[in-house]
Write a protein that binds this DNA or RNA. Structure first.
Lengths: 64, 64
DNA sequence: ACATAATGTAAAATATACTTGACAAAAAGA
DNA sequence: TCTTTTTGTCAAGTATATTTTACATTATGT
């Protein structure tokens, strides 16, 4: 399923997918795919995303 | 680096690496490697581990 | 001491995360 | 409109997560 928390946190920082991708050292397509929800990133990438957006793993990736 | 929080949470549940592996649908070697810290699991596996151990992502995998 | 369970580790194979390059569509600004 | 940025998506390639099989070592119990 889509990760709307991620999309929203990125919007709150006024970053494009490409901005976030560069900040995390991955490509735009990877960020796009994660937001779209069609795959399963590694924990290190999740942590990099969280740090770029000033969020924690639980805030962006935990399934309640 | 080693993931001692994971090792400790597993001990608190009195589960072997193999017990936890089965609960998560992966192999014992994968759990061993994650505890040893020499690789980078996917977020879905991290979530499965957390649920098996009644912990959250921040408790087991967040880097402070 | 002996048996058994649990852990550490390694090489080869497979599955899948992630990249690269590219193009189209939608959104935003002038 | 017109231009530019942003997003969506796809196919083919590369890097790496995970499996399988296997063996050695360390702990635990009797």
């Amino acid at each position: 399923m889509k990760n709307l928390r991620l999309k929203s946190a990125r919007a709150a920082k006024d970053m494009s997918q490409e901005d976030l991708a560069k900040a995390c050292g991955v490509t735009r397509q990877t960020i796009n795919a994660i937001e779209k929800g069609d795959y399963n990133p590694t924990i290190n990438l999740c942590i990099a995303i969280c740090k770029a957006l000033d969020k924690t793993l639980d805030e962006l990736f935990w399934e309640y």
